[in-house]
Amino acid sequence: MIKLNFSRELRLLTPAQFKYVFQDPQCASSAQITILARINQENHPRLGLAVAKKHLKRAHDRNRIKRLCRERFRLLQHRLPNYDFVIVVKQGISQLDNQQLFNLLDKLWQRHIRLAQKS
């Protein structure tokens, strides 16, 4: 049975973990969002989020984006490669509604799956 939880072990928690991904990442990006990835030594993918106040001023807007990103990761985690992922938000993310953001994230996750299969 596939577990679809988002436990602590599926998260990037320390600055060192984020720094590792930022050093030499594989990128999949669009105008509003970028997903950086780097292979990890774990048996599962992990997720980190970088949602800056610069692009989303209000906390409830930042929380909405983070909640939707975590939800999409949670549902797709069993298909993702064993990488550390960091989602970086860009200007214009606030104009997307929930369904548009889900579609955009799906497209970027599929790109990472294809990149992992090539390497």
Score class of each variant (00 low, 15 high):
residue 86 V to G: 02
residue 81 P to A: 12
residue 102 F to S: 05
residue 91 Q to H: 15
residue 22 F to H: 10
residue 56 L to P: 06
residue 59 A to L: 07
residue 45 P to D: 03
residue 54 K to L: 02
residue 47 L to D: 01
residue 78 H to Y: 11
residue 113 I to L: 11
residue 105 L to I: 12
residue 87 I to W: 01
residue 60 H to Q: 12
residue 59 A to D: 01
residue 66 K to T: 00
residue 65 I to W: 02
residue 63 N to C: 11
residue 18 F to V: 03
residue 34 T to F: 04
residue 113 I to T: 14
residue 36 L to D: 04
residue 63 N to A: 11
residue 100 Q to Y: 08
residue 24 D to L: 09
residue 78 H to W: 09
residue 57 K to S: 09
residue 81 P to N: 15
residue 105 L to E: 04
residue 34 T to D: 02
residue 94 S to T: 11
residue 61 D to K: 15
residue 27 C to A: 14
residue 68 L to H: 01
residue 67 R to I: 04
residue 52 A to R: 14
residue 90 K to N: 11
residue 110 Q to S: 14
residue 32 Q to P: 13
residue 56 L to R: 03
residue 50 A to R: 14
residue 33 I to R: 01
residue 64 R to S: 02
residue 25 P to W: 07
residue 32 Q to R: 09
residue 27 C to P: 03
residue 16 A to M: 13
residue 31 A to T: 13
residue 23 Q to F: 13
residue 85 F to Q: 08
residue 86 V to T: 10
residue 48 G to T: 02
residue 13 L to E: 06
residue 69 C to M: 05
residue 99 Q to T: 13
residue 56 L to A: 05
residue 98 N to G: 05
residue 98 N to M: 06
residue 28 A to P: 04
residue 42 E to I: 01
residue 106 D to K: 08
residue 70 R to P: 03
residue 58 R to N: 12
residue 64 R to P: 03
residue 36 L to P: 03
residue 43 N to V: 07
residue 61 D to V: 04
residue 87 I to S: 06
residue 96 L to Q: 10
residue 27 C to Q: 11
residue 76 L to H: 08
residue 26 Q to G: 10
residue 111 R to S: 08
residue 58 R to K: 15
residue 24 D to E: 14
residue 36 L to C: 00
residue 105 L to C: 01
residue 29 S to D: 04
residue 91 Q to N: 15
residue 90 K to M: 14
residue 46 R to V: 00
residue 63 N to G: 13
residue 24 D to N: 14
residue 18 F to W: 10
residue 107 K to I: 09
residue 78 H to R: 12
residue 107 K to W: 15
residue 77 Q to T: 06
residue 15 P to R: 10
residue 103 N to R: 14
residue 98 N to I: 01
residue 72 R to N: 05
residue 31 A to S: 14
residue 56 L to Q: 09
residue 55 H to C: 12
residue 19 K to W: 10
residue 69 C to D: 00
residue 24 D to C: 10
residue 96 L to Y: 04
residue 13 L to T: 14
residue 97 D to G: 09
residue 84 D to T: 00
residue 15 P to A: 04
residue 74 R to M: 03
residue 84 D to E: 02
residue 60 H to I: 04
residue 106 D to H: 10
residue 41 Q to G: 13
residue 35 I to N: 01
residue 47 L to Q: 00
residue 92 G to P: 01
residue 51 V to W: 08
residue 36 L to M: 03
residue 44 H to N: 02
residue 76 L to I: 12
residue 96 L to H: 01
residue 61 D to T: 11
residue 59 A to F: 12
residue 56 L to M: 12
residue 24 D to M: 15
residue 26 Q to K: 11
residue 100 Q to N: 13
residue 64 R to E: 04
residue 109 W to P: 00
residue 42 E to C: 11
residue 70 R to G: 12
residue 43 N to H: 09
residue 98 N to T: 01
residue 102 F to M: 07
residue 20 Y to F: 15
residue 62 R to C: 14
residue 111 R to M: 12
residue 103 N to W: 12
residue 44 H to Y: 06
residue 21 V to Y: 12
